Computed example of a mutant assay.
Amino acid sequence: MDTTEQLRQDRAALQLINPAPYNAEAPPEALVGEITPTALHYVRSNFPLPEHDGTLAIGGAVDNPLTLTLDDLRAMPPHEHTVTLECAGNGRLQMRPLPTGEPWGDYAVSTARWRGARLSDVLALAQPASAGVAVRFTGADHGAYHLTPVLPDIDRDDLAFERALPLGLAADPASDILIAYEMNGGPLPEDHGAPFRLVVPHWYAVASVKWLARIDVLTEEFAGEFQTGHYIFEWTDRPPEPVAIMRVRARITSPAAGAVIPAGPCTVRGKAWTGNGPIERVEVSLTGAGEWYPAQLEPPSGPYHWQEWSYEWDASAVGRHTLRVRATDAAGNIQPEQPDWNRLGYGNNAVEVIYVDVV
């Protein structure tokens, strides 16, 4: 099978948002299980699929610059984590007025098992200098940027994807940041960053740079189009903030929005996640302004991915009913009733509202 046909098959189950660069949401069934099958995992790209030479260069303010291959990374102690990744623009379509950016609905979120070398182990080999403060990650993807650049002096016609993390976070073994080369037990697919990518637990997925080509330790904070230009919360009533940790959110996975269900007992199910885990409480409301009832929340089966919840609803009354759900995390964060509007439409974690018809 040629590469084009394989790519077409890999993308067949997804909901297309933009063909170039390729962006697609997961289908609703992708949120049902604990793990999202690879073929159903959403895809977010800022540029076309790149060519990658198979090497990862580590340099900048380090005492031991080095270049690693996939075989080198596989030879290091392997680590595997199940991680929920959510696009920072997930839910943008629900904001009013509609912000600029990819028109994501509510399915730019997925959970996969990632296996790879720990970033802290790679940085330890390179020996960051004492003056280091940040680590920049450069992907092999680049090209013409389809959105208007925010920063001055940006080459819109050939821009590379670059993000940075604080050195203290990147070099900390406890952060469990991976340079991943496997996804759900198989080789990393092309759409998901082959041959290797960053996976940063708890953070919005923009931090998990795909097609990783370079790592550089910096002696000053990084300013780049995808760091301080885009992926910034530009509020109307407070100073801007960088997009970083995922905000608390709960979703209903069953019954489906707009479903027609028979009168009688109905188990409402869903997922909840946060970057400030674990989830501590999920509540369901059966009217627009009514009481909130506690759902049954399953304990976390890992530190970095969504939790399941359920609620036993007596759906005996025929007619149209609304269902609302909200989550509270370990840091005390609770979902707002309305989207927290910002100019670029990031971080929508407003309470989900659906309706079903009982017959």
Rank of each mutant, 00 (worst) to 15 (best):
G277T: 02
V351D: 06
R320L: 03
A75K: 10
L14Y: 03
L178F: 12
E241F: 10
L85S: 02
F47G: 02
H146K: 15
T219Y: 14
A124S: 02
S175I: 14
D172I: 02
R247F: 13
R247C: 09
A75L: 09
L40Q: 11
Q307V: 03
R247D: 09
N342C: 05
Q94R: 14
L212G: 01
D71G: 13
L93A: 12
F47D: 04
L98G: 04
L98Y: 14
G54P: 01
R247E: 11
P50L: 07
G105R: 05
E162T: 08
R238W: 04
I179Y: 10
N184M: 04
V353K: 13
P97Y: 10
Y181C: 08
L93S: 10
G302K: 01
Y107M: 08
T4W: 13
P50T: 00
S45M: 14
A26W: 09
V109Y: 05
R251F: 13
K210W: 04
P97A: 08
E337L: 11
G288Y: 05
V358Y: 04
L297S: 11
I215M: 03
S310M: 15
A223P: 03
V359F: 15
L151G: 02
A108I: 04
T84D: 08
P27A: 06
L66C: 11
A259F: 13
A272G: 04
Y311E: 07
R115C: 05
R326K: 13
E234L: 10
A259L: 13
G347F: 09
S110M: 05
N348W: 07
E308M: 13
R92V: 14
N18E: 07
P299Q: 06
A131F: 11
T111S: 05
T219S: 12
W235M: 07
E234I: 03
D340M: 04
V351L: 10
R269L: 15
P19V: 02
Y304K: 00
Q6P: 00
M183P: 01
T36E: 01
D314E: 14
G33Q: 15
A256G: 13
R11A: 01
P166Y: 13
S130I: 10
R251L: 15
V351N: 06
Q227T: 00
D155Q: 08
W211T: 00
Y311V: 04
G185W: 03
A257K: 15
A272E: 04
R269H: 10
G168H: 12
A257D: 15
W211D: 01
L167S: 03
L56M: 10
E234D: 02
D63Y: 08
G186A: 15
R214E: 14
S301N: 02
G275Q: 10
D357G: 00
P242S: 09
A180Q: 07
A174D: 10
W341F: 08
P187C: 03
G258R: 11
T82I: 07
V318R: 14
H230T: 00
A180L: 07
